[in-house]
Design a binder for these strands. Structure first.
Length: 679
DNA sequence: GAGCACTGC
């Protein structure tokens, strides 16, 4: 880097401990991870590290009802274990289910195993994810998302179709996996009590920290598998860095000047804004590098990028040019990029936390856990040895929490509680979670459901009402708008809106093209709020039959929009099953807003004389999120979809409503709330 | 004046 007065932190790096030691006695560890196309599949299978352990593994798995399997990346556990079980005739009376947190993983793993078994996908080996079921009566090995198995459990709590359930990627501790832990444990016990065919549960994790898993599943044995991770050199800074972005910048150019250009760099950062900013800075600096320093291509990576832009991270840089990827934690698990030689870890992550007292989601930048830091480092050693530069000291690393707090302990539990009750679990308040959520969070969720009329209390027990049952079938996050929509003759519109809000975002906002975005969006903007604006965009999208060019011109994420269409079709089907009338209110959008006011009355806010807003439920001071079309407006009453605490407490996705509608929706509730406001 | 990452009906 030119003209930098301070010695760059990369110079201050000292070698840390090598996490993955290379064992020279095991030449298998240096085999390329991807199968060689010229090597026959059965030979490839035998070259996997797990193959050596096959006899002992089968011996154990045959006897055990529960097992915890630890295997590093590349051990082959996910593709081989189901086949080993099947080939050995274990669990032949039923289906072997293998769950994954992500749908792409479920689909591609099924494809790989079908190929290894030389069968057509959907026959012996299949997969089930939302919108797609590629299985048949012949299917014995079924890859599925964990959410999908949960859904199936509502109709069949004992999971009788399955003889083995393999919970893969358990270390990620998603809400779905955590609920599944309890569901399979209960099913296992009940099946034993009822003398049904036993259920075998195998928990697979990539991290060694599995005491909790073992303890939870009746002290089940832990089996270790060797992986194929290459050695990674870890470097720490000598001094704590007050500005991790500056440290990242300096480190990028330090590596850029010293390392061969074919070595790509992956930088873990917290969010879109800082990624785009650093990308700009890097490109500027790269233009003025001294001679002998090769060119560099800087590629941002985060989830809300349109698909075409995300694909850029997989394109190899031109010869002699270095690829620098600036990414959020999306590259920790979901996106695997080959050719990464250097990882720069800022040690920070943006994550959601949930405060049950305020009912507030807080999105904040925080330190990563140790497990996360190792996960990030591991991204440098997938094909060959690599290095990870941690922009914090070894001492700082040692003070990190060992594991990321499981999601179940930092989310709104209303949906989980609704689902558990739909599963027929009697005592949801004391459900046997592996990591118990706080009693306050459970209480707050049950109260929320009570307010919606989804549950009722009898003698200290809570149970699902008829409305609650319908809610559980139509929406994972409990709300009433869909069920109320026939009363307002606007179910078509409400289904569209719910679908639009169920995906991350259908809008694409490249910061560099702000003016263009605003101009393009103007023609859809409704003074009635974000729901109506989204509806306008959706209607226009359908009018052009989802034309990709139209999406690009209007800064609409076509992939997510396609998803919206699928969700809407699915919701329609459910509505038909529930005998809900499907009709459109046409141009009378007032009905849609009345329905939203009624369905979301708990999320109402009132304009205060000083121009701020007050959330009527919690009496918190809130503000309109700058992304809202109502940001500049000052409507007297709004309902909002969610509260998000970042720099302030923001309402997101707002709809303009009348005070009268709110009062009509819940006279008693608002009588109380509005009274409180005045006092 | 601002948007970590997944998933399911």
């Amino acid at each position: 880097m030119p003209h930098d007065p301070d010695p760059p932190p990369a110079k201050k790096f000292k070698p840390g401990s090598v996490f993955f030691r290379l064992d020279k006695n095991k030449p298998g560890m240096l085999l390329p991870r991807k199968g060689n196309a010229t090597t026959p599949i059965d030979v490839q299978r035998k070259q996997l590290p797990i193959y050596q352990a096959k006899p002992q593994l089968l011996n154990q798995l045959r006897q055990l009802h529960n097992a915890i399997l630890i295997g590093e990346t590349g051990s082959g556990k996910t593709t081989q274990i189901p086949q080993y079980l099947y080939e050995a005739g274990i669990g032949r009376q039923g289906i072997i289910a293998i769950t994954q947190p992500r749908r792409v993983a479920a689909i591609s793993l099924a494809g790989r195993v079908a190929e290894e078994k030389r069968t057509q996908l959907g026959k012996l080996v299949g997969y089930t994810v939302r919108f797609e079921d590629v299985t048949s009566s012949e299917t014995k090995m079924k890859f599925m998302t964990d959410g999908m198995l949960l859904r199936e459990a509502i109709g069949d709590p004992l999971l009788l179709r399955y003889t083995v359930v393999v919970l893969d990627e358990a270390h990620e501790r998603t809400v779905h996996t955590d609920v599944l832990f309890g569901v399979v444990k209960t099913a296992q016990r009940r099946r034993r009590e009822l003398n049904k065919i036993p259920l075998k549960v195998i928990v697979m994790s990539a991290t060694m920290d599995v005491d909790l898993f073992s303890e939870y599943f009746n002290k089940s044995p832990v089996l270790y598998l060797e992986g194929r991770q290459h050695p990674i050199q870890i470097y720490y800074t000598k001094q704590p860095q007050s500005d991790y972005l500056q440290a990242a910048l300096v480190s990028i150019f330090q590596i850029h000047q010293e390392a061969p250009p074919s070595h790509d760099i992956l930088v873990f950062m917290t969010g879109q804004e800082e990624i785009e900013a650093l990308a700009r800075t890097c490109r500027d600096i790269a233009k003025h590098l001294p001679d002998g320093c090769g060119p560099m291509v800087v590629i941002p990576l985060y989830a809300s990028l349109p698909p075409a832009q995300q694909l850029r991270v997989f394109q190899p840089a031109p010869k002699g040019c270095r690829k620098v990827i600036l990414s959020t934690n999306i590259a920790e698990t979901s996106v695997t990029i080959s050719g990464i030689k250097y990882v720069i870890d800022t040690g920070m992550v943006k994550a959601k936390r949930f405060n049950p007292d305020s009912g507030l989601e807080v999105l904040a930048v925080q330190r990563v856990s140790k497990a996360q830091a190792w996960q990030r480092a591991g991204r440098a050693g997938r094909e060959d040895s690599g290095s990870c530069y941690r922009l914090y000291t070894e001492q700082e690393f040692n003070s990190l929490i060992p594991m990321t707090v499981p999601e179940i302990q930092r989310c709104n539990l209303a949906g989980v509680m609704l689902q558990l009750m739909a599963l027929g679990i009697q005592d949801v308040i004391n459900f046997d979670f592996m990591s118990k959520p706080s009693p306050e969070a459970v209480r707050s969720a049950v109260e929320h459901l009570e307010l919606l009329g989804a549950v009722e209390r009898k003698e200290g027990q809570v149970s699902l009402t008829a409305l609650g049952k319908k809610m559980a079938t139509c929406c994972p996050q409990p709300h009433m708008t869909i069920l109320l929509s026939p009363d307002y003759s606007c179910s078509e519109e409400i289904l569209s809106i719910v679908s639009l809000l169920s995906v991350d975002t259908v809008l694409y906002n490249p910061p560099a093209r702000r003016e263009e975005v605003l101009a393009a969006r103007k023609k859809f903007t409704s003074s009635e709020g974000d729901h109506m604006t989204l509806l306008n965009i959706y209607r226009a999208f359908k009018k052009v039959s989802g034309n990709k060019e139209w999406c690009r011109e209007n800064f609409v994420n076509s992939r997510n929009m396609g998803l919206v269409k699928e969700v809407q079709a699915q919701l329609k089907e459910i509505c038909l099953k529930l005998n809900l009338k499907l009709e459109s209110c046409g141009a009378d959008t007032g009905n849609v807003r009345r329905c939203l006011a009624h369905g979301m009355f708990v999320n109402a806010a009132e304009l205060q004389p000083d121009g701020s807003y007050l959330a009527l439920d919690t009496h918190q001071s809130v503000a309109i999120h700058p992304s809202s079309v109502l940001f500049q407006a000052k409507p007297a009453y709004v309902v909002f979809n969610e509260l998000l605490h970042t720099s302030r407490c923001y309402m997101r996705d707002l709809c303009l409503v009348d005070a009268d509608w709110l009062l009509d929706a819940a006279p008693e509730y608002f009588g109380r709330k509005l009274h409180l406001t005045k006092s």
